[in-house]
Design a protein around this nucleic acid. Structure first.
Lengths: 225, 225
DNA sequence: CGTTGTGAAGGTCTTCACAGCC
DNA sequence: GGCTGTGAAGACCTTCACAACG
């Protein structure tokens, strides 16, 4: 589970469900699409879901088949049922406590992200090194000193840590989160984190995304000119 | 290039360089790793680069082989040369103008992101619908009305649009960006954008990432218990 | 020597095509 | 009739293992 791999062959060692990584990364999209459907829609075919999710219908069917068989031939999938099955597969039947490390522009923007609650995520801590920031309230969350990180993680049963620090501080934060028993890290710092195999890191990196866009941009232009 | 596909088989139609998508998405990581090396380091082996980038050395070599043969057997890669080759492959030898749509928490945090400049990206516009925000200056960028979007894109030669609006507004913004000739979009709104094939969209989605983490979290716990 | 570059092997993921079922 | 579920085929990606080379 080392970082840099989005869903490589290095699969978690102990795995009950056998859902391929590529499928896992699409399930949240399906879930959102189902959620955005008008309440009057009770049923949805793989073709329809594929169109709104931007995926081929065969892909949708194969993905959903890993959850078991919840479709009705000739009809499609029951929206509520399917939604529930996806939530169950993703572990969204319970809530998760999240701590955000770094209360800069990004950290406080994340703290104010409204979408957390709807999927059962709750920000139970926002910490920063800067003494001047301590005590300030961003979007309803009080900034605490980073020295409290370990205490916050254990006492508030934090499951997920979000690293929103400058890159030079990110590795140290990741080490501390891992030591405090946090096994899931979402890294917004533009650096590769090195963590034990038992810790799962996902990276969200603006520069990387922009550079991938420019690659295609350049190739398109070369092709055109 | 429809969204939802990170690097599927739907390859851009006209493509000069034949670099696989998976490799393209790792090149920015290598580039950053090389950049972070101390200035005293002139040379770097695939083994070393692999360790800091979190990738197997064979993978590094195969990836770099697509750029041509720039390594020296028995020695490794010249850091400066390799860095230049990667930049060239990614199209980073020129600058790109970026417009950010949506000046909420996230939009203004992005406007203040220091990492833009170092790779040749320049934020030339930050727009919002809210009349109350117009004229305010966030991190040196003045907020302009979204009605100016088309004008900004054409007059300032915008290459990349960043969508940082609420999800209900995102599709409309994408349509307008596409109509204004912007062919690269980075979408932070939690929704799937539907754009013409000629437009390249990449999605950055906090909820999705968190849900993928909880999938692994749940499976780990099931395995342990 | 040590390290690159690469064919070949082995996985994983996507797409097709159609049997099976409502 | 229409749609799901799935084996099979094919595309893509990673890893291995070693010849080639400075």
């Amino acid at each position: 589970m080392a970082e840099g791999v989005r869903h490589g062959p290095n699969v978690p060692r102990v795995l009950k469900t056998n859902i391929p990584g590529a499928t896992v990364s699409r399930l949240p999209i399906y879930l959102r699409c189902l959620n955005d459907l008008p309440a009057s829609v009770n049923t949805c075919s793989s073709e329809q879901l594929g169109i709104i999710a931007g995926v081929k219908s065969a892909q949708v069917r194969k993905d959903l088949s890993y959850l078991g068989s919840y479709g009705v031939r000739g009809v499609g999938y029951n929206v509520a049922d399917l939604s529930g099955q996806i939530k169950k597969a993703l572990g969204l039947t319970r809530g998760y406590h999240v701590v955000i490390v770094g209360a800069g522009n990004l950290g406080s923007a994340l703290a104010g992200y409204g979408g957390f609650g709807s999927w059962g995520f709750e920000v139970v801590g926002l910490v920063d090194v800067d003494p001047a920031k301590i005590g300030a309230i961003h979007h309803g969350v009080t900034i605490e000193p980073i020295t409290n990180l370990e205490e916050i993680c254990s006492q508030r049963e934090v499951a997920i840590g979000i690293v929103a620090t400058p890159s030079h501080a990110a590795q140290d934060v990741a080490d501390r989160l891992a030591a405090a028993g946090v096994v899931s890290i979402l890294n917004f710092a533009p650096t590769v984190l090195h963590v034990p195999d038992s810790v799962d890191v996902r990276r969200v990196d603006l520069s990387t995304e922009l550079q991938i866009l420019t690659f295609h941009l350049q190739n398109r232009e070369e092709g055109a000119g």
